[in-house]
């Protein structure tokens, strides 16, 4: 329990440092630091109001405390372009990013774990000689380029899938859930999710393969054989269970990293997600949105790193059940 608390404290510390770095970055950029919040088209009155609201008339150290306090409450100000609170914009696109990330990473990991174990089982065969270099090649391909090729082939070329976006124009839905589960949404989701999955499957596959090969050498697997246990018990309950530990950690960390790395795939498929919002806002100097999106992506990343840490200690009894000697 104590270690969970200390890990949690550590996570908050990291988050705080990241927020501070972000604050400094936006203050260090050339020009008027208040430009991060105030658009020149605002009226003088509006500007004064905002300056006061964000404490921008205060000295830098005070601004810093106000920034941290606001960020902790999810208060990032108002977008220059959309003229609405940043938090609303973020929450609009967050479901799209989450669905895209989770669906692709789950598919990738299930596939990777199964094929990785299968390859370990078929060590030194022709299958290995074909699959491993293929996987390495897929991992070496830039995600967005993979997306471009798939989009040009299956989207524009064959016309099987739409060319971008998350929903067809004009479609209306009763709730966020009915939108996400509509066939139209899933149709739009397929190519970007496939692109990400193709890229992501390499890590779990190679990890699972090498872990399995390592675990198979362990004494306890040899012992299981000597006990005459059925082969499926040896493979699933002993080898796979142990080999899965690091893959589960990689999975959690992968979710966190994917949210940020999705930027490029979201751009290729014009997927209205967090990454695309970040790119658009940075390009348009819509700093409040950029700050908010960045911080949200960082928060997910740090949170998932924390969960990965916890997950490992839950799944590995050597960590969760301390030695009792």
């Amino acid at each position: 329990m104590k270690s969970v608390l200390s890990r949690f404290a550590q996570m908050l510390f990291v988050l705080w440092v990241v927020a501070t770095i972000l604050f400094l970055m936006f203050r260090l950029m050339p020009g008027d630091p208040t430009a991060a919040y105030i658009d020149t088209t605002f009226t003088e009155e509006q500007q004064q109001q905002l300056r006061a609201a964000f404490g921008l008339d205060q000295p830098l150290w005070k601004q810093y405390f106000i920034f941290i306090a606001n960020a902790a409450q999810g208060e990032f100000g108002e977008s220059f372009h959309h003229r609405k609170p940043v938090i609303d914009l973020l929450m609009e696109v967050l479901p799209n990013t989450l669905v895209l990330t989770l669906s692709s990473i789950i598919v990738a990991y299930i596939f990777g774990v199964l094929v990785g174990s299968w390859l370990a089982w078929n060590r030194g065969t022709r299958a290995e000689a074909i699959v491993v270099p293929t996987v390495l090649t897929l991992r070496a391909a830039p995600e967005f380029w993979l997306g471009m090729v798939l989009l040009a082939t299956f989207g524009f070329g064959l016309g099987w899938f739409p060319s971008g976006g998350a929903n067809s124009a004009g479609a209306a839905y009763g709730s966020e859930w009915s939108r996400i589960f509509s066939s139209d949404f899933l149709h739009h989701l397929f190519l970007p999710a496939l692109t990400l999955a193709l890229y992501l499957q390499g890590l779990p596959l190679l990890l699972m393969r090498s872990n399995m090969l390592d675990v198979m050498q362990e004494d306890f697997v040899m012992m299981a054989r000597m006990k005459g246990l059925p082969e499926w018990v040896i493979v699933l309950k002993h080898a796979a269970r142990n080999a899965l530990l690091p893959v589960m950690t990689a999975f959690a960390i992968g979710i966190g990293q994917s949210i940020g790395a999705n930027v490029v795939v979201e751009t290729v498929f014009s997927w209205p997600g967090l990454g695309r919002l970040l790119v658009a806002s940075v390009a348009a100097s819509d700093y409040p949105v950029a700050q908010g999106a960045f911080l949200l992506i960082a928060a997910v990343l740090v949170l998932m790193n924390f969960i990965a840490d916890l997950l490992y200690s839950v799944l590995d009894p050597r960590v969760s059940h301390g030695a009792r000697r």
Binding site: M226, N242, P317
Partner: peptide
């Protein structure tokens, strides 16, 4: 069979 090191011969993740 009794192994030299039961530490390695027992699966670490099961009671």
């Amino acid at each position: 069979f009794v192994p030299q090191s039961a530490m390695n011969a027992l699966d670490p993740v099961y009671r």
